[in-house]
Design a protein around this nucleic acid. Structure first.
Length: 586
DNA sequence: CAAGGAGCAG
């Protein structure tokens, strides 16, 4: 038991306590005062503490940096430790930064340094830095070290230079399992399963890593999940990771039954196994099952992490299940699941799609860090809830804060403008999109522009947008022009749209229904009958419209023409009321 | 006086 400290502990005592990684978080908390004074009095204490922090899982890079800054004259070991932490936590730039700092201070590192640095290069910095490091490795005589050499292979392979990796691999006098595995992973990453399989067959011995690389490759890279399964069944010794990988192979191609079967027969599971399945159900249109599974996971005593939490939130979003979403939000807060940008963004999206603008805004306002996705979700959410002005406000806030934007930001703003009829504002932003923000409009943006103009009756301009856009117009573009023609009664452009849709092979029943409605509206009955006949001979049928909503935890489904819902009368009364009030506000 | 390279969820 760690006693709560009234007196200050000596650095030596603290260090002996820090030997057990599991208790470190508590020690950091309880003995914060002692640690501060130890940092002050014992010059080597910070270095030891830094190492202790690096052993934590999850590590806190921010805390590690604070500790690092307390080290008076960091040696190679301390630099290695801070570089390792950052490389491991996915901060490659930071890792390289400390590598550079080390060099600046006249320390050149040892053969322990390079594998960390190479990992950082491999993950995102590109192999140009890798090539530089390679030169450095040779210069310092570390090129005989297998750890370093394997690090180089993986760095090259992860940057698409698998040829360079292979050259290194072939030149090895000695290889170990990791050399083989790194090379095979390189081929799999590149999508060359044949070469990967060849190497795999040539291997003198294999471990679960080797098998998993191939299973994962067949399952996700090439979608040959049956081949992956054959390998899986042949494996002599299976570990947790390869089970998860196999399950993920099934979920990523939508074979949820097989995934579930495998999941049920697992000897042990971790939070990743649950997350894979939860997310799989959420991604493949079975959010109810995803939520059930999430509950099962809690029941079974597995603590959810950020990933599984996001999966469950997404499932709520898809079902429009506000109550369950709110409960989840509350639960995550209570259990102190880390709230990062991704989780919070998922919550905003959920609240928006459930129509709860206030709760969404609460989360948004409480965030100290926001990603592009966060802003986008906010803008899209406000727009689709009919608050175009508010969406524009968020966009302008983004501008003021110089937050990075992407194409989805603009798509969101344009759509928001369309829904609220803010034509001039939308046009202005479309103009500035390329000139000021340097973002090239895609087909979707032109589509939004056509919608924006079309819905307010500026059909000629909408048609000109389609005519002048730099890429080939898609069927969706003609479709929205057609829809606009229906609202604003323009037979000529409607016929043109249908003609173009037919050329693109996108003339489904809905298209002809629209056209015949337009004819009917203009009293052109001959044309109406012509279209109806055309539809009948073409074997087309109107698709049935349906929607679903959650109330008090129950999901209600509505199908066009179906009157089996117990509250049908009341529902229609409300609808009548709503349409009356819409008419009166116009 | 401690440490490194390869595989699974977003």
């Amino acid at each position: 038991m760690i006693s709560s400290s009234s007196s200050t502990l000596l650095p030596k005592t603290l260090l002996s306590l820090l030997k057990k990684p599991k208790t470190i978080p508590r020690i950091l908390q309880i003995h914060a005062v002692s640690i501060t004074s130890a940092l002050f009095f014992d010059p080597s204490f910070a270095a030891r503490l830094l190492f202790a922090v690096s052993e934590l899982s999850p590590t806190s890079p921010a805390y590690a940096e604070t500790v690092f800054s307390q080290i008076p004259r960091p040696d190679t070991f301390s630099y290695n430790t801070i570089i390792r932490i950052h490389a491991h936590c996915g901060n490659p730039l930071k890792a390289i930064h400390f590598f550079a700092l080390m060099r600046k201070n006249g320390i050149f590192g040892d053969n322990y340094t390079y594998p960390f640095v190479l990992k950082a290069c491999g993950s995102m910095l590109g192999c140009k830095v890798g090539v530089l490091i390679h030169g450095e490795v040779i210069k310092r005589g570390f090129d005989e070290d297998l750890f370093v050499r394997n690090g180089l292979i993986s760095c090259y392979c992860k940057n698409g230079e698998y040829g360079l990796g292979r050259k290194l691999f072939d030149g090895f006098v000695a290889r170990d399992l990791v050399s083989w595995n790194s090379m095979i992973a390189g081929y799999v990453d590149y999508g060359d399963m044949e070469e990967a399989q060849n190497l795999f067959d040539e291997m003198p011995e294999r471990d679960p890593y080797s098998w998993t690389i191939l299973i994962d490759g067949y399952g996700k890279k090439v979608g040959d999940v049956d081949r992956a399964r054959k390998l899986f069944d042949k494996m002599p010794k299976r570990d947790l990771v390869c089970w998860n990988s196999m399950i993920d192979g099934y979920t990523s191609c939508g074979k949820m039954d097989q995934a579930r079967e495998l999941f049920e027969s697992m000897p042990e599971r971790n939070v990743i196994s649950w997350s894979i399945l939860i997310d799989g159900y959420a991604q493949h249109g079975n959010p109810k099952e995803a939520l059930d599974l999430f509950q099962q996971m809690l029941h079974q005593g597995t603590k959810p992490d950020k990933v599984s939490a996001v999966g469950a939130i997404t499932a709520c979003t898809q079902m429009g299940a506000l109550d369950q979403g709110r409960w989840l939000h509350f639960y995550l807060k209570k259990k102190k699941i880390l709230f990062d940008v991704v989780v919070q963004t998922a919550l905003i999206d959920m609240y928006m799609k459930c129509g709860s603008l206030d709760l969404a805004s609460d989360v948004f306002d409480s965030m100290c860090e926001r990603s592009v996705v966060t802003w986008n979700v906010m803008i899209v959410g406000l727009g689709s809830n009919g608050c175009g002005r508010l969406a524009l406000e968020i966009f302008h806030k983004m501008e003021r804060e110089r937050a990075p934007m992407d194409d989805l930001t603009f798509l969101g703003v344009l759509t928001a403008c369309t829904h609220t009829g803010l034509v001039s504002e939308g046009l202005e932003i479309f103009e500035r999109m390329k000139s000021e923000f340097g973002i090239e409009p895609k087909v979707e943006h032109y589509g939004a522009l056509v919608d924006l103009l079309g819905r307010t009756g500026r059909l000629r301009e909408a048609r000109n947008v389609i005519g002048k856009m730099p890429m080939k117009p898609t069927s969706a573009l003609w479709g929205s022009l057609l829809a606009a023609c229906r609202t604003h009664k323009c037979v000529e452009l409607a016929e043109l749209s249908v003609e173009q849709l037919a050329k693109l092979g996108a003339d489904d029943s809905g298209v002809y229904v629209l056209l015949s409605n337009i004819y009917a509206g203009e009293g052109m009955w001959d044309d109406v009958w012509r279209i109806r006949k055309l539809m009948k001979t073409g074997g087309m049928r109107k698709e049935i419209g349906r929607s679903a909503v959650e109330v008090d935890g129950t999901v209600h489904e509505f199908i066009y023409g179906d009157s089996s819902h117990p509250f049908m009368q009341e529902i229609y009364a409300v609808l009548q009321d709503l349409s009356n009030s819409v008419v009166s506000t116009r």
